[in-house]
Design a protein around this nucleic acid. Structure first.
Lengths: 194, 194
DNA sequence: ACTATACGAGACCGGGAGTCTTGTAATATC
DNA sequence: GATATTACAAGACTCCCGGTCTCGTATAGT
C-alpha cells in the first residue's frame, strides 16, 4: 500500500527517530513534562535540535508518537458474543495500556499540552481521542445489531463515561486503573438482566 | 470566627486583589492560558509583578482563586427525599457552574497546570477536586442511610464516573455539559426499579 | 561529478519567569 | 507627631528556554 517514491537526498535517519522517541519517554518519566526541554531531548538522543523540529511540530507531538508506539497493543474488537464480554475485553485492554510504566506520565503530559496548544489539541483529538472512541463504537454498534445494547444511555454517553472515568483517574485522583474499576464500569453500563 | 489580629504595616490592598482576579479571568479567555504572562496580568490589573508573587505561588493559583469566586454558587446538599432527586440536583448545580462563560477555559487551564506543576497539582487536588468529591459523598452517604443506594458501584466509583464524565467533556470532546448528560448519568447510576 | 536532502553541533535572538531595587503609601505603636 | 513595619507600582536585571539560522558533513538519486 505504501510504496514510497524515494526522493533524492539523504533519507531520514531511523536510528535518530527511534532515539528521539525513546529519549522523550525516558525524560518525561525522569524530569516531568515541565522539565522536558528540546535541548535536553536533543542531547539525550544525540541529535541536533533541528532534526526534532524538522519532523515534529512540538514536544507533545513527539510524545504522542512515542505513546502510539508504546501502546500498539491493539485494542481487541473481535466479537466475543455479548455486549458485556466485548466491553470487558475492551476495558481490560485499555488498562493494560494505561498501566504500562511510563504511560500515565505520558498521557498526563499530552492531555495537558492539548489544553495549552490549540493546534496540538486538534491533532490530539482527531488523531488519538477520536480513534479510541471509534474503537469503542465498533462494540456498541455490534451490540445494537445483536439487540444487546441498552436503550439508554446513548453510545456517545457510553464513550464519555468509559473514557471520562479512566482519564479522571489518570489526571485527577491518580488512582490506578484496576480490575475493580473494570467491573464497576460494566455494572454501571450493562443493565442487570434486561 | 476570623477575628484577625491586625499587624502593623500597610494592609493588603483589596482593590488590587480583585483587579488581579478579574484580569486573570479576562486574559485566559482572551489570549488563552499559554498566552497568559505575569507581566501581562500585572499590567492589565494595574499592579506590580511583585504584588502577584507576594500572594500567589503561580498563575494557576490566581486562576484557582478566581474560579472559586466565580463558582460560589454553592452546590446544594439539601435532602430532596431520594438518591435520584439528590443526584439530579447535584448534577444540575454542577452544569450551572461549568457552563458559566469563562469557566470552561479556566478549568482547562487549571487542570493542565496541575499536570505540569506537581506542587500546584497537590493544592488543586486537595483544595478543589477533593472538596467536590466530598460534596457528592454527602449525597451517597445519605442515600445509604436511607437504604436508597445501589450495592454497586461503590460511592468512590460513582464520584469517578460523575466527575470523570464532566471533566472529559471539558478537556477532551469540548461538548457542552447539557441536561441530556444529566439524565444519562442518572440512568447509568440509579438502578431502574431496585 | 552533480544535486538534493538530512545530519550533528552550536551560535544567536527574543520573550517570559522570577528576583531585586527604588521611592512611596498606609497602618500600628509609642 | 515620630517611628517602625508592611504593601504598593514601576521597572531593571538575570537566567533559561524555544525557535531559527549557519556551517561543515553524510548519504542518497541522477
Amino acid at each position: 500500500m505504501t510504496e514510497e517514491r524515494r526522493s533524492p537526498g539523504r533519507p531520514r535517519s531511523q536510528s535518530s527517530r527511534e532515539a528521539i522517541l525513546t529519549a522523550a519517554i525516558q525524560l518525561v518519566a525522569e524530569v516531568g513534562y515541565a522539565g522536558l526541554t528540546i535541548d535536553g531531548l536533543a542531547s539525550r538522543a544525540g541529535v541536533g535540535k533541528q532534526t526534532i523540529y524538522r519532523w515534529w511540530a512540538s514536544k507533545a507531538d513527539v510524545l504522542l508518537e512515542a505513546g502510539a508506539a508504546l501502546a500498539d497493543v491493539r485494542v481487541p474488537v473481535q466479537d466475543r458474543g455479548s455486549y458485556e464480554a466485548d466491553l470487558r475485553a475492551f476495558l481490560k485492554a485499555s488498562y493494560r495500556i494505561v498501566n504500562q510504566p511510563q504511560m500515565a506520565d505520558l498521557l498526563r503530559a499530552v492531555m495537558a499540552e492539548a489544553q495549552l496548544n490549540p493546534d496540538f489539541g486538534d491533532r490530539f483529538r482527531s488523531g488519538f481521542l477520536q480513534r479510541r472512541r471509534e474503537a469503542l463504537a465498533v462494540i456498541t454498534a455490534r451490540a445494537r445489531d445483536r439487540g444487546d445494547l441498552p436503550e439508554r444511555p446513548a453510545p456517545g454517553t457510553v464513550a464519555d463515561v468509559v473514557f471520562g472515568t479512566i482519564w479522571y483517574r489518570v489526571l485527577a485522583t491518580r488512582q490506578a486503573f484496576d480490575k475493580r474499576l473494570v467491573e464497576d464500569l460494566i455494572t454501571v453500563l450493562v443493565p442487570p438482566v434486561a
